[in-house]
Amino acid sequence: MTNSSSNTTVEMTGPRGAKPKRALSPRNIMIYGVLLVVACYYLLPLYVMIATSLKGMPEIRLGNIFAPPVDITFEPWVKAWSQACTGLNCEGLSRGFWNSVRILIPSVAISILIASVNGYALANWKFKGAEVFFTILIFGAFIPYQIMIYPMVIFLRELGLFGKLGGLVLVHTVFGMPILTLLFRNYFTSLPEELFKAARVDGAGFWGIYFRIMLPMSIPIFVVAMILQVTGIWNDFLFGVIYTKPDAYPMTVQLNNIVNSVQGVKEYNVNMAATLLTGVVPLVIYFASGKLFVRGIAAGAVKG
């Protein structure tokens, strides 16, 4: 703890108290050494994915999976995107990609819209019983989906939505609601109450306050919710496989069918290219959003 103590003295007494820090103390070497090894371990699968996807099959059969590609080829990528087969269908992963996009956009928009209004009502317009429903909702976040999936099938069938895009959107909205409602409720509760009261005095109603005051003030939390939902829905497998038909399978389901299909020769480079293509969307969001992603998952984790 020598480092931190010198840091705190710097803060308190200015330059006078600063001790010269040794950059290469044994302690630092150990910390950075361990962290570097850990970082390598975490990066390894990503590296293997990229390296394998850029090799030709002969090179894969001869070499080892950790070797960098010698003859870089983008053919596996092209093949994974437009020719890879699932069963009789050989349109490649592109179909799954567009299915996922079609699922993603309405699901994200609708689930966030509904959850934000819910959270707003819970934070600012408490009515009798609201807390009870909210508690049930939060408990629901922990209930294994398995116990609700079959009645949901019947429910969607009755509505005529089973196997359709609308059905899956509904499922994502329902099962995303606990975490999103919690997120928005906590955020709206943290806003100064005077704002709300002032707007009430000025005669604004429920929707007026929501659209003209709350919404413009809560762009950051909407971004956090979007990150949460986009990665969550993109990565979903269970709902996709249950509530859609093969034509409409999202990317994760199609990817699994391509890679784990038993027919034909295994083309590991194509498989890895396909895997990487599926992982790219959440990875881009993750690396682009930085701290907001952390905030999103932490907001989901730490109860208010």
């Binding site: 975490y42 990066l43 990565n235 994760t252 990817l255 992982g279 990875l283 993750y286 690396f287 998952i297």
Partner: peptide
């Protein structure tokens, strides 16, 4: 680096 796998799906 340590957190990025969390963004990936279980399938990947």
């Amino acid at each position: 680096i340590i957190l990025y796998p969390f963004a990936l799906s279980f399938i990947v």
